[in-house]
Simulated scan of single mutants.
Amino acid sequence: MRFESSCRLTGISSPQFLIASHIKPWRSCVNGNERLDGNNGLLLSPNVDLLFDRGLIGFMEDGSVIVSSHVDSS
């Protein structure tokens, strides 16, 4: 929460409705420092976290959303 204060897609800012999601999965990190690095995290609402974890959305460095081609555009 020191790096972000809300879900970057929905704008939700209530901590009880946010999940700390990891950009690089814990299992792929080489050590504890990498796992706990705030730059490796995103605050997301649960529905957005699910889409992110399943690879259906992603984020560019500027924060814009990338939508997988597997998602129906409608």
Score class of each variant (00 low, 15 high):
residue 63 G to F: 03
residue 43 L to R: 01
residue 45 S to I: 01
residue 18 L to S: 01
residue 50 L to A: 15
residue 28 S to T: 08
residue 66 I to D: 02
residue 7 C to H: 00
residue 64 S to P: 08
residue 13 S to P: 02
residue 5 S to N: 11
residue 31 N to A: 03
residue 67 V to W: 03
residue 42 L to S: 07
residue 50 L to Y: 05
residue 67 V to P: 05
residue 57 I to P: 02
residue 58 G to W: 03
residue 38 G to H: 09
residue 24 K to N: 10
residue 65 V to L: 15
residue 51 L to R: 07
residue 57 I to Y: 00
residue 20 A to T: 08
residue 71 V to N: 09
residue 59 F to P: 13
residue 28 S to W: 06
residue 49 D to F: 00
residue 21 S to C: 12
residue 69 S to P: 02
residue 57 I to A: 03
residue 22 H to C: 10
residue 7 C to F: 00
residue 6 S to M: 12
residue 51 L to W: 03
residue 49 D to M: 00
residue 44 L to C: 10
residue 34 E to T: 07
residue 16 Q to R: 14
residue 37 D to V: 06
residue 21 S to H: 02
residue 6 S to T: 01
residue 35 R to E: 07
residue 12 I to L: 09
residue 34 E to G: 02
residue 22 H to R: 12
residue 50 L to Q: 14
residue 12 I to R: 00
residue 34 E to F: 08
residue 31 N to E: 04
residue 23 I to R: 12
residue 71 V to L: 15
residue 2 R to D: 08
residue 37 D to F: 08
residue 20 A to G: 09
residue 60 M to L: 14
residue 57 I to K: 10
residue 32 G to E: 11
residue 51 L to M: 15
residue 33 N to K: 09
residue 14 S to A: 13
residue 29 C to N: 10
residue 55 G to Q: 07
residue 50 L to N: 09
residue 11 G to Q: 13
residue 38 G to P: 09
residue 42 L to A: 03
residue 45 S to P: 04
residue 16 Q to K: 13
residue 1 M to W: 08
residue 34 E to A: 13
residue 68 S to Y: 11
residue 30 V to N: 07
residue 10 T to P: 01
residue 14 S to P: 00
residue 70 H to G: 00
residue 10 T to F: 01
residue 15 P to C: 07
residue 9 L to M: 14
residue 7 C to A: 10
residue 8 R to S: 04
residue 23 I to H: 06
residue 74 S to P: 00
residue 10 T to Q: 05
residue 34 E to N: 03
residue 58 G to I: 05
residue 9 L to E: 09
residue 26 W to R: 15
residue 54 R to V: 04
